[in-house]
Structures are given as structure tokens and as C-alpha cells.
Nucleic acid binder design. Structure first.
Lengths: 180, 180
DNA sequence: TTGCTCCTCACGTCACGTGAGGTGGC
DNA sequence: TTGCTCCTCACGTCACGTGAGGTGGC
């Protein structure tokens, strides 16, 4: 296999493979007479692992190390890092919400009503779909539990009522649209 | 004020301020006879805003735009971006957990018992302390609710029992260590 | 011969950090 | 004079993307 074929097979760009060769992460087994890169079956399997590991967000250097000596601790470290990164993102969300609520400090227009609600939703770090699913499952299990959970999150009475109303509506819609 | 003083006042490095000058984000009002940068009171106030905006994670270019023309939509965009980024991190967490559970694919040692539990905890994107607090609050409110919540998260019976036992222990410790 | 892929530099990205080499102020 | 801060390049970071300019294969 040459670069183009390998790139397409894995949905990567050529420059990615050239880069991997450059940093000695994945060098082709050989070269053709015309100096084309030729990848072996082993190279293909190695690339498969690389792609999997890459999806965890660890640095290519660590991936390189992992390939030569599997080390379990890399995953624990990465999980811890991810935790920190998520917390950092949450801090950013909080900062934005503060700026939105205190336009005086940042001198931006005020935010209110349903906008504020959606901002709070996002600040919880969940996607809209995920949150809707969560609320639906809670409401179906126990409406009372749902309400206390919303209070638990620090929402005020009216806001909680709004969410519950929305969720009930969503459930009705879901039931209505359910295939027979 | 010169660079060093301003840097210290805001807890920034000098190179940061040099960089901000270079990209025309914050250029000093003037220069001394020895070509030192001299920052005015206006510059100080501008830097204050820059520091606040920086905490939201928006690019310096956008911050530069914000300073000349306040635009509310920047925050909405950033919130949406943050959502995407958090989801991306969650995908990475999932990938790691899969690799940990399927050592065959990644050829890493197996994970079991309490390790698996802590991995699940981290995969929820909460810090250990946050999670402990959460469990404590739930357990104090309603032990039954706590258990059903754990099932809700997909934990099996024994694992749930373990968490509850741990939480009860933590509560006892907290009560015991409480200042009189 | 015409396209096509391939090759090798080399520069740009983002927000700085880190020297190198030199000058002014107390 | 001794440190101290200041100055201006310029390179390194991370994982590529994007040309520029040129060659081999069908």
C-alpha cells in the first residue's frame, strides 16, 4: 500500500501519514523504486492501534511509547487530565454566565428569561439532548423525585416548574410520535 | 507603569504583555526616553477586561473585537463551543473505558474491582471530591433514593452496595471530625 | 502527452516561554 | 561598578494543513 491508499482506508489525510513518518510514529516498511512509501500489513495493524489510541486524546509521543511498551498508567493519567480539562471548561462556562448576568463588569447586554435557562442548561456541561433524556427518565420514574432533583441543582421554584412542564410536554410528544 | 509592574499587578508574565503588544491587543500609551513601554490608566482598565474575557476561553482576536465593539453573540458561540468540547472529552473518556474493559483490542492489562469503579467515577466527569459530596448529600436525604440513583447510572447491585457503604463511612467520619 | 499520485522542503497555526545578546536606570 | 529591568529578535511548542516546485507511473 502507498500513502494515498492507506490514508483513504483509514479516513486520514496524506499529510497526517507524512507527519507520522516524519516523527517516526509510523514509518513505512519500505520504499518503491520511485521512492514511494510502501506500507506493510504490519504497518496497517499498527496504524489501526494508533487511530484507536488517538481517540483517547493522548499525545502522539505517548502513543509511540505505548506501542513499544504497553503501560496501563497512561490511561489513568489521561482520565485524570480529562477531569481537569472538563473542570477548566466548567470554570469558563461559569465565567461566561457571570459576564452575562453582570453586564456592568463586561459591558454586554443583559440576559433574561428562557435564554438564561438555556445558559444554565449548558453550564451543567450536558448537551441539550442528553439533558432532555435525563429529565424525561426522571419524570417518568417519579415526578416528585424530579422536582427535588431540580431544587437540588439550585433552581428556583418557578424555573423548576418550567422544566417539569417542558419535560411533560416532551414525553407526550415522544409517546405521540412513537411508532405503532 | 512599565511592563514589569503591570505584569506583577495582574499576575501575568512579561512575555505575555510583550505578546499582547506585538499582536496589537494592548499597546502601551507611550514610551520612555529609554524606549521603555509606559502604560496609562486606560491601558490598565483595558487589561482588566482582557483578563476577564480571557477566562472564558475565547481567542485573543475575538477579545480584541469585543473591546472595540461589544457583541453579545460571542458568548453564545463560546457556550456552544464549550458544549462541543465537553462532548469531545466525554467521547475520549468513553474510549479509554472501552480500552480498559476490552484489553484485547488495545492489549493492555485487565481492569477490575475498585479500579473499575474509580474509572467509572472519573468517566462521569466529576472530581473525586465533588462526587463524594454528591453521594453524601444524596445518602443523607434518602438512602433509598441514593440506591435507585446508582442503579439509574447502570451500576450493578454489589457495586451500588459498596458505594453506599463507603458513603456511610464518609458521613460518619465527617460527623466525627466536625468541630464542636 | 495528459492527468494523476507521489516526493521534499518550508511556512502557518495559537498563546505564549525561553534564551541570546545588548542597553539604560538606580 | 554591580545588579536589576528593560529592549528586540528568533526559535520552540502540537498535530497537522497548505502551497511550491518537481518527478515517476499508467
Amino acid at each position: 500500500m502507498n500513502v494515498g491508499e492507506l490514508a483513504e482506508k483509514f479516513g486520514l489525510s496524506r499529510s497526517t501519514l507524512l507527519y507520522y513518518d516524519k516523527i517516526d510514529l509510523l514509518s513505512p516498511a519500505g520504499r518503491s523504486t520511485a521512492n514511494y512509501r510502501i506500507y506493510s500489513e504490519e504497518d496497517v495493524q499498527k496504524l489501526e492501534k494508533i487511530c484507536m489510541y488517538r481517540k483517547t486524546g493522548v499525545h502522539l509521543k505517548k502513543i509511540s511509547q505505548l506501542l513499544s511498551s504497553p503501560d496501563y498508567s497512561v490511561w489513568e493519567e489521561r482520565l485524570s487530565q480529562l477531569n481537569d480539562e472538563m473542570n477548566a471548561l466548567r470554570v469558563q462556562q461559569k465565567m461566561i454566565l457571570e459576564l452575562m448576568e453582570n453586564p456592568g463588569k463586561g459591558e454586554v447586554e443583559t440576559l433574561f428569561g428562557s435564554n438564561r435557562f438555556s445558559a444554565i442548561l449548558r453550564s451543567l456541561g450536558l448537551s441539550d439532548k442528553e439533558l432532555e433524556q435525563f429529565h424525561i427518565r426522571m419524570e417518568q420514574t417519579s415526578s416528585e423525585e424530579h422536582r427535588s432533583f431540580l431544587y437540588f441543582l439550585g433552581l428556583k421554584g418557578e424555573e423548576a416548574d418550567n422544566i417539569i412542564a417542558k419535560t411533560k410536554k416532551a414525553i407526550k410528544m415522544a409517546i405521540k410520535d412513537r411508532p405503532v
